[in-house]
């Protein structure tokens, strides 16, 4: 499979703190790549750089051959970023929020309507979609923001902790939608998560980031076999502790 995302020699510091120390990463088209690692490993920084929110001190990032540092607007048109605590405009209704977001991607009114219809389906909020966002629970907001990220038909979805803080039902819905989109629409996903079970079930490949460096990478089954571990959590704990 051709690469969707190519990250080369990425370095990023916040003052004296070196968040990324020359990160290299390749994500193939149509796969779900899981970025795991302890807090402060550099996962969010990596995702934010790919999403054009941050500029690295050095290194390069290409998304479908587009250099995100040189042509950020072009890159943003092919990808969708869902931040860890993504909010939605609390004074708009869920439907208004989806329409607003679709308006930046749709080429005409009918495409906009299709996107919004898709967003409503993904969010699966029923009649509550017409209520103001400020009345939504955390899980409902997450469904809405995930719907926003996927309905615009991106080629790459960058999802930072997509199920963080959600109850089992909402988390299950989110995972099901992600998997469905990858299988049916050929979407490429790069996500970060602290939930090893989720990563193991959802991701095609996993990279363990620790102190700004990629320590190990591979398919979950490969990694478990390589490190003679029962699950990814054991792999994570074993490698990160070294």
């Amino acid at each position: 499979m051709p690469p969707s995302v190519v990250v080369s020699g990425l370095r990023k510091s916040y003052g004296k703190v070196e968040a990324l120390k020359g990160l290299d990463l390749v994500v193939n088209e149509g796969e779900i790549y899981g970025l795991i690692g302890p807090n402060g490993a550099g996962k969010t920084t990596t995702l934010r750089i790919i999403a054009t929110l941050l500029r690295p001190d050095s290194g390069s990032v290409e998304v479908f051959g587009i250099d995100v540092l040189d042509r950020p607007e072009e890159a943003r048109a092919v990808m969708s970023y869902l931040p860890e605590e993504a909010g939605a405009y609390r004074n708009l209704s869920g439907l208004e929020f989806l329409k607003f977001m679709a308006s930046f991607y749709a080429r005409d009114e009918s495409e906009l309507e299709e996107m919004v219809e898709e967003g409503v389906r993904i969010a699966a909020l029923g009649d509550r979609i017409r209520d103001r966002v400020k009345t939504y629970s955390r899980g409902m907001k997450r469904r809405l923001t995930l719907a926003r990220a996927l309905m615009v038909r991106p080629r790459l979805a960058i999802l930072d902790e997509p199920t963080s803080g959600l109850d089992v039902i909402h988390a299950h819905h989110v995972r099901r939608v992600i998997r469905e989109y990858v299988e049916e629409k050929g979407l490429t996903v790069i996500l970060s998560s602290h939930n090893m079970l989720e990563v193991e079930r959802l991701c095609d490949r996993v990279g363990l980031l620790h102190r700004g460096r990629l320590l190990i990478e591979g398919e979950p089954s490969e990694l478990k076999a390589k490190y003679n571990a029962g699950d990814l959590e054991e792999v994570f704990v074993g490698v990160a502790a070294v």
Binding site: E85, G87, A88, Y89, M101, Y105
Partner: peptide, 14 residues
Amino acid sequence: EEKTLETLLTLPVS
């Protein structure tokens, strides 16, 4: 405050 800025800044608009 409402964590919408990151989403706004990643939209395909200048």
